[in-house]
Structure formats: C-alpha cells, structure tokens
Amino acid sequence: MKIDWRRMGQEKFLLNKKLKYKKYDGDISKGAHEHCSFCYELISSKGPITEAYCTLDEENWICKKCYDDFKDEFHWIIIKEE
C-alpha cells in the first residue's frame, strides 16, 4: 500500500469494483456535481473535470489522474457503455 494523502479508506468501497468512463451529465444550475473519491477535485458538466471514471451506480467518481495512480492497487474492471 502506498502512503498518499488521498488515501482515506477507499479500499472499503472501491476495491475490485467495476467502473465506467463517462461524461458527467448532471445539471450544474441545480447544484449537481460530484467530487473525486480520492483528491476531491470537482467533477461537473461545466468542469474543471467533465469526464471521469465512476462506479456502475454512479455513486463514486474517480478523476483520470487518481484512476491512473491507483488502478493497479485497486484492481478496477472497466466496463464499456453501449
């Protein structure tokens, strides 16, 4: 396990999860947005991040940088949307 300020016990809910990569489509005018589950960067339809990895239920979002940094350790499985 790497020592990293972004680690806050995410293995409890993100280890071995299936993820999809998608554009965030929530209505920002109604306050819809998410945060990366690791670095807490804003993910919204207006940015700064507009596309990210998310669990299939879209409850947890992971920015590309954090995905790249933690993908080997968390053993994520990428599902392509059809």
Rank of each mutant, 00 (worst) to 15 (best):
K30M: 05
K18G: 03
T55Q: 04
E58S: 07
S37V: 00
K22C: 02
S45E: 10
L42P: 07
L56A: 03
L56P: 00
D68A: 12
E73L: 08
H35N: 12
I28S: 09
H75V: 15
L14G: 00
S44V: 06
E51C: 10
K64Y: 12
F70E: 08
L15N: 00
I62L: 06
D69R: 14
F70L: 04
I78C: 04
T50R: 12
M8Q: 15
I28N: 13
S45Q: 11
E34R: 14
Y67F: 10
K80H: 10
I79D: 00
P48W: 01
I49L: 09
Y67L: 02
Y21Q: 00
S45L: 07
D72L: 12
K2F: 13
S29M: 11
F70W: 15
K65T: 11
K20I: 03
G9Y: 09
K2Y: 13
G26L: 05
E58F: 03
E81C: 00
K46W: 10
A52N: 11
K80S: 01
Y40C: 06
D4P: 04
S37M: 05
Y40A: 12
R6E: 09
I78D: 02
K65G: 07
S37R: 13
A32W: 09
A32S: 08
N60F: 11
D27G: 10
Y40M: 13
H35Q: 12
C39R: 15
S37F: 01
P48D: 01
Y24T: 06
H33C: 08
W76S: 02
K80E: 08
W76F: 10
I43V: 01
L42D: 04
A32D: 07
A32Q: 09
K64N: 14
K80P: 01
E59S: 11
T50M: 06
Q10R: 05
E11D: 07
G26P: 05
S44F: 06
I3H: 13
C54Y: 07
K65R: 13
N60Q: 15
A52W: 04
W5A: 13
I43K: 14
H75F: 12
K64W: 15
D69F: 14
L56W: 02
Q10C: 11
S37E: 14
G9Q: 08
S29H: 12
S37H: 14
I79E: 09
C63W: 12
